[in-house]
Design a protein around this nucleic acid. Sequence first.
DNA 1: CATGGTAAG
DNA 2: CTTATCATG
Lengths: 273, 273
Amino acid sequence: MNAASSPEEAVRIASVNVNGIRAAYKRGMQQWLDGRGVDILCLQEVRAPDAVVRSLLGENWHIHHAEAEAKGRAGVLIASRQEPVAVRTGIGDSYFDTAGRWVEMDLEIRGSALTVVSAYVHSGEVGTQKQDDKYRFLDALGERLAALRDGAGHAVVLGDLNVGHTQRDIRNWKGNVKKAGFLPEERAYFDRFLSDGSGFVDVARSLAGDVDGPYTWWSWRGQAFDNDTGWRIDYQLATQDLAARAVSADVDRAPSWDTRFSDHAPLVVDYRI
Amino acid sequence: MNAASSPEEAVRIASVNVNGIRAAYKRGMQQWLDGRGVDILCLQEVRAPDAVVRSLLGENWHIHHAEAEAKGRAGVLIASRQEPVAVRTGIGDSYFDTAGRWVEMDLEIRGSALTVVSAYVHSGEVGTQKQDDKYRFLDALGERLAALRDGAGHAVVLGDLNVGHTQRDIRNWKGNVKKAGFLPEERAYFDRFLSDGSGFVDVARSLAGDVDGPYTWWSWRGQAFDNDTGWRIDYQLATQDLAARAVSADVDRAPSWDTRFSDHAPLVVDYRI
DNA sequence: CATGGTAAG
DNA sequence: CTTATCATG
């Protein structure tokens, strides 16, 4: 784990799929947060009513939270130490307006405009409506990326995007080419999202280089965590100028199975703004 | 807790609402059973598939188990160390044939015929269908008691009958006169079941005498267990001759909250047959 | 293998 | 406050 506060002139942004914030807090998420000096905390799969979320996170945040219509499902939020300029809910396709999968926050950081998006893409399941919904959501995500790229300020779209982009992003890629999360059609979306000219950079991959992982999700089942049989499906996709200002990207993999507070690990990036 | 095996020439019959046999085993039911020398074990609210039940109880029982049609609900069984002469499922009213609330086992104990019934009466809820079902089940129970009384051998109808008979059977009877489990109409059934001429005796009451309790159920909530705010709703109703042969009736109240394996305590009776 | 909601107790 | 099931991940 890194220093307890972000470096001078840097903003620390963390993305975590908490898989139920109540369970995560029971398992020690607060201790992680206390030691991490996060400026902007972005969560996915919050799975709790707003009042519960606010009482868990405490008073010292400006929270923008979008619950799903279905109780106990999905839910995304952005919690900022600094007051936001604006907040929005919804990816632009009204079909997803009550899905609890997309929130945006505009901030002004030392004179620079920054838009942060916390996103939770569908898990999907081949041959079901869920997979259709996932593609439709990814379509909308592509459109929103283009609009953000064409905007004035910095932007970072982060969260659980539920797709492994390349063979380096999944431990057992050969066994998963027909599974939701590593389908060729899903991966092609990410080829487009991250192509030259897309205006966006996969910050963790850019800083880690051409290596396997680092993974951000491991099944609870079996020995997946202990064997590091994981998937890199949590991302921070930053506009080019912002990505160039990223000085570190860390996956806070827990030291052991029983110290995990979620099946996902936090992805923490420091941006020098 | 009593001696580890039943006295010579006595048969030890235990009744327990386990509130889910899997949870009960996790909480240490096996240790209770190991130390108790039970000859005939009668369970209610088993709430598990037959294969799971048999693997938990092990090989050394003759088990007659009636699951409910609805998975994870109700379920009663009788497990005997000795091979039964016959087994039956169902109280006689076919409406309850798949309810998982009534099983019978005929045994021959040193030349005497003994019928054991494990019963799980509905909890009921005032003003709902559940209360109607409870009364209908109690009607059938009354008819079956009469038939057993008129039969040749000994009989004991035991289990979670979900009614407190008298003011001595509920800690807070005044607060519960309008609650299912202590309604005048429900209590009147027990007046009839246990009247002179009914042929049946409430063994635990008969041996305990005119005292408060001993209770057999305490809500999981609050301090009900620690304060002994309980209900006596688990019974062994024995035919007169058999009841006269009961030498002890013990409620195995756990020493502390966290050593309970169910919200009900076992009711263990030794019959000198 | 975990999450939360649910019906039931 | 606990049980098991359920849909979801």
